[in-house]
Design a binder for these strands. Structure first.
Ligand SMILES: [Mn+2]
Ligand SMILES: [Mn+2]
Ligand SMILES: [Zn+2]
Ligand SMILES: [Zn+2]
Lengths: 144, 144
DNA sequence: TATATAATTGATATTGAATTTCATTTGCAG
DNA sequence: CTGCAAATGAAATTCAATATCAATTATATA
């Protein structure tokens, strides 16, 4: 079994949360894509495998998957929360095209370091951070 | 008249948007505080001066104030959009305490420069960007 | 393995901020 | 002034997030 599923199984056990086919299916579907999914997106994907699984179950499952450390919530400011992989995916920022919605994931150790430094300066204990650049991607730049 | 109000007046004229007592009052109230206000916050403050002004008018006015370049929308991820001053306030990130809600405004030219560099690297034309660090402030660190 | 029981599920209801609608009011050009 | 389009304020609508609840199901234990 892949490591991500192991982590999930152990998390369930540790927290006294029950295993269920629904939760396994939802995790499988989530792990099988690298997209930044909204709950509705994930629900539609899950429907293809098991049309009986309800929206509320998907909603609750992805929350648990997040708590288990396998997903990270990302907010692109468009009114819907998204979920992306967290396990074996290093922290990154996003550059989001305001025209086509496409985004680029960016990693910059220098920025990360400077952020740590800022936190130290203000005696702030950082837990998570967010870096987003909104603008126009190369393709959309040339469009009218 | 202060410059900010000038800018607003000219923006209204340029856009063919009418002047109104309500809009002026809402702008005055907004300019008179340095807080990060939600629409409801601003509405309550406006109520103290002119109790007849409705929520929808405040909502519409702060949007116009933003468009005029006097306010910036900030999203601390708690489900309510906030507005802060933009005019004569340099761009900054936020460190937000997840325990008490307090936040610290941080400016780091090095990070800004690195972000520009990242954008260039991906041929991305940046319009605005966001940097937020969530964690625990000095006071809350010691609490249970 | 059968049973008790507490967690989970799925349909549905609720919440709350954002946004829209619309009848009335008002700014302002002529 | 007057006419009329824009603005206002109350209320309605939207929609994602979250809660509710009766039916179902996983799992501990006898
Ligand atoms: Mn990502
Ligand atoms: Mn600020
Ligand atoms: Zn684009
Ligand atoms: Zn604090």
């Amino acid at each position: 079994m892949e490591m991500a599923k192991q982590i999930f199984t152990f998390y369930l056990r540790d927290e006294g949360i029950r295993y269920s086919q629904q939760r396994e299916c939802i995790l499988d579907v989530f792990l099988s894509t690298e997209k930044h999914l909204t709950v509705i997106d994930l629900y539609h994907l899950v429907q293809k495998k098991h049309s009986g699984i309800g929206y509320a179950t998907v909603y609750r499952a992805i929350k648990i998957i997040s708590q288990a450390g396998l997903a990270r919530e990302v907010d692109f400011g468009d009114g819907m929360l998204r979920f992306e992989h967290k396990y074996k995916h290093e922290h990154h920022g996003h550059m989001i095209c305001t025209k086509c919605g496409k985004f680029i994931e960016v990693v910059d150790p220098q920025i990360e370091e400077l952020q740590e430094k800022l936190a130290r300066k203000y005696k702030f204990t950082p837990q998570r951070h967010k870096m987003q650049i909104y603008g126009t991607c190369e393709k959309c730049k040339t469009k009218v």
